[in-house]
């Protein structure tokens, strides 16, 4: 699914990354805790989060995450937007709660970037 289709599906605004709407997304990860994102998310996935601070963008950048969906209509600061632009991370902004956003994406074929946390995930990064 493209970022453009995800934008439509989530009735979202594209805040950063108009030029990346054709980006293909296959998997996603949802969390507000960035340490868990750093531990378990995979490169190329979409991050769905209610955390709209610079650390969310820097976490996405650290892992080569394809883009961020900020859910629950969380307020976006200029700093957040500036850093997303600087680091080239597309930002979608939706009023949907995380559960609803994830459910809509899953129904249309987006899967978790990992299905469950396995022992080897805890011990060793891939």
């Amino acid at each position: 699914m493209t970022l453009r289709e995800i934008k439509e599906l989530l009735d979202a605004e594209i805040v950063v990354g108009e030029d990346k709407l054709d980006l293909e997304i296959k998997t996603a990860f949802g969390a507000d805790l960035m340490s868990d994102v750093l531990a378990f998310a995979r490169s190329g996935c979409l991050l769905i989060t209610g955390l709209s601070n610079p650390q969310a963008v820097r976490t996405a950048y650290a892992l080569d995450i394809a883009g961020i969906v900020v859910c629950r209509g969380k307020a976006l600061t200029d700093k957040f937007i500036d850093i997303a632009k600087e680091l080239g991370i597309p930002i979608l902004w939706t009023q949907f709660i995380m559960f609803e956003a994830c459910g809509r994406l899953y129904r249309e074929g987006i899967t978790g970037c990992i299905r469950e946390v396995l022992v080897e995930d805890k011990q060793r990064a891939q």
Partner: peptide
């Protein structure tokens, strides 16, 4: 917070180090 991790990642990317290695460095430094 996280700016050092981002800067180090940028530097390593310019040097052509494999992306999977850079990701690990970025997480550790973050």
């Amino acid at each position: 917070a996280g700016i050092v991790s981002s800067e180090i990642k940028k530097n390593l990317k310019e040097k052509g180090i494999p992306e999977s290695i850079i990701r690990k460095v970025a997480v550790v430094t973050f």
